[in-house]
């Protein structure tokens, strides 16, 4: 029992990290730019595919391909925001709703584009370290899980330092907390939100690669990943970077614990039930705005 618990907790924690890094961009986009990017996980799956092809066509490990993918996805996000989202939001009575419909359409385009290009066959990432494991006491840690967790730590850590230490980052935080005050202080709202959005999409790429280390994927997988993202964002609070991190870990832990004490079939119900209760007790999520 103790061994099972330790093993499940460890696994859950590491997986939670992957969920966190997948979700942090979505949370940022929603909180700072007020855009519900329903296509967020479609970008993540796209990154997963690119990493997969880098490995299978050119022998480049997806982690090494990330430095190239990050700026690319950042620019993609910036372009998307400048060309599509800003124009829509400006004219909309309710920017959040209009951009949701927009990103929904975008998600469909990306998914089916991938379908056309790469067929619906499921993919599994097989890196050099896929089967590697570490023994920590009685618990076995899988290398891909550890690496996904490492990616999460680095990315979320970098994001957090960015918002705390750099001027642009502080501007982003200001816009998150008090848009009007930020505007009055001379911060260029347009520029800041666009950059924040670009960063959100870039982290989706990291999230996609992290998830691909753990799970199989095909063009339609982005919808099931989106459910995880919603769960993390509810718990962590919309717009909070640390909140997403914490929420991801907690959700991973909950899944780990419940699989030991509760029949597996009720796992999801336990998770949902706990989240509902948590949300009702603390409506803003874990970390307040």
């Amino acid at each position: 029992m103790l061994y099972e618990l330790a093993q499940s907790l460890t696994g859950g924690l590491l997986i939670g990290g992957a969920l966190a890094v997948l979700s942090v961009g979505f949370s940022m986009a929603w909180g700072i730019t007020h855009v519900l990017n329903v296509a967020h996980c479609a970008f993540a799956v796209l990154a997963a595919y690119l990493g997969y092809w880098a490995l299978n066509r050119w022998g480049i490990d997806p982690l090494l391909a990330l430095p190239i993918m990050l700026p690319t996805f950042f620019l993609l996000g910036v372009a998307m925001h400048t060309l599509l989202i800003r124009a829509t939001a400006r004219r909309a009575h309710d920017p959040g709703l209009a951009t949701m419909v927009l990103t929904f359409g975008l998600g469909i385009v990306i998914e089916n584009g991938m379908l056309l290009a790469w067929t619906p066959d499921p993919r599994v990432l097989k890196t050099a370290y896929s089967a590697l494991t570490l023994q920590v006491g009685p618990v076995i840690v899988q290398a891909p899980h550890l690496i996904a967790f490492g990616l999460a730590v680095i990315t979320i850590g970098a994001l957090y330092l960015f918002t705390e230490r750099t001027f642009m980052g502080k501007a982003v935080r200001a816009v998150w907390q008090q848009p009007m005050g930020a505007a009055l202080s001379g911060i260029d709202l347009d520029r800041v939100t666009t950059i924040a959005y670009g960063m959100a999409v870039a982290t989706a790429a990291v999230g996609g690669v992290a998830m691909s280390l753990l799970y199989t994927f095909d063009p339609a997988t982005h919808l099931s990943w989106l459910v995880y993202v919603f769960l993390v964002v509810i718990l962590g609070g919309v717009g909070s970077i640390l909140g997403s991190a914490l929420a991801g870990l907690i959700i991973g832990l909950i899944i780990g614990i419940s699989s030991v004490f509760v029949p597996l079939a009720w796992n999801n119900l336990v998770l949902f039930g706990l989240l509902i209760v948590l949300l009702l007790l603390r409506p803003q999520g874990l970390l307040q705005r």
């Binding site: 061994y3 099972e4 093993q7 696994g11 859950g12 699989s259 029949p263 079939a265």
Partner: peptide, 20 residues
């Protein structure tokens, strides 16, 4: 003899149960 929902977030618990 257990049932599980998909998506399966972590397969390790299934294996530890069987192993145990």
């Amino acid at each position: 003899n257990e049932r599980y929902d998909v998506p399966l977030t972590d397969a390790a618990p299934l294996v530890t149960k069987a192993k145990g």
